[in-house]
């Protein structure tokens, strides 16, 4: 039994730290783990996706259409872009923050504001929250990634203390307290 989690967002939002945390945590829990990341050009403000898969034995590092148990999105439009990868009965956890892509900025396209409602109407399970405000409350707008990991933690069968220990092992010492607070705000949301 393999669990598949996608972490999606806009290049520069900190998805690599989130996947590093998740990878560390799941490895420490004794699972076989694969994490596939994106480096290079698309990190410059483009749409980015990280795949995390764990279980007794994991072969493929990627997640295809209809395969993800969870999609954790740092931005609303990106949640919609990757929604097709969610499996029947899976859950999207998304930040409600809206970051306009260049075609929207230039006026060549419009941002589909109500896109999450469209998905909900089709029966897609969505947990949406203003993770940016919670991150700022924790002390840094950059902590959106850890706030969302806090929300995800509620759905995974791993105790919160184990997550907090993984945070201590993953982030730079001076940011540990801030990130623990961000995690707690997501977990308590």
């Amino acid at each position: 039994m393999t669990t598949s989690i996608m972490i999606v967002g806009v290049g520069g939002q900190g998805s690599l730290l989130a996947s590093k945390l998740l990878g560390r945590l799941l490895t420490d829990e004794g699972y076989d783990v694969k994490v596939s990341e994106v480096h290079g050009m698309s990190q410059r403000g483009g749409s980015v996706v990280t795949y995390v898969r764990y279980g007794d034995k994991v072969y493929s590092p990627v997640i295809g259409e209809g395969e993800a148990d969870f999609i954790v999105s740092f931005e609303k439009l990106e949640a919609a872009r990757w929604a097709g990868c969610l499996k029947e009965g899976g859950t999207i956890i998304t930040n409600t923050q809206q970051i306009d892509p260049m075609p929207v900025i230039t006026g060549a396209a419009t941002y589909p504001e109500a896109v999450l409602n469209e998905l909900t109407a089709k029966g897609v399970q969505i947990t949406a929250l203003d993770a940016l405000s919670l991150a700022k409350e924790a002390g840094s707008a950059k902590a959106v990634n850890i706030v969302l990991m806090g929300v995800l933690a509620k759905s995974l069968d791993i105790p919160a203390e184990t997550w907090l220990a993984a945070i201590e092992n993953t982030v730079a010492p001076k940011f540990v307290e801030m990130n623990k607070k961000a995690f707690a705000l997501g977990y308590g949301n």
Partner: peptide, 20 residues
């Protein structure tokens, strides 16, 4: 058979990389 996911009806604008 491979699973099919659900997508919104609205067009999703692309998000190409860009200069910072």
């Amino acid at each position: 058979e491979t699973a099919l996911g659900k997508l919104p009806d609205s067009a999703i604008p692309p998000r190409p990389p860009m200069m910072c």
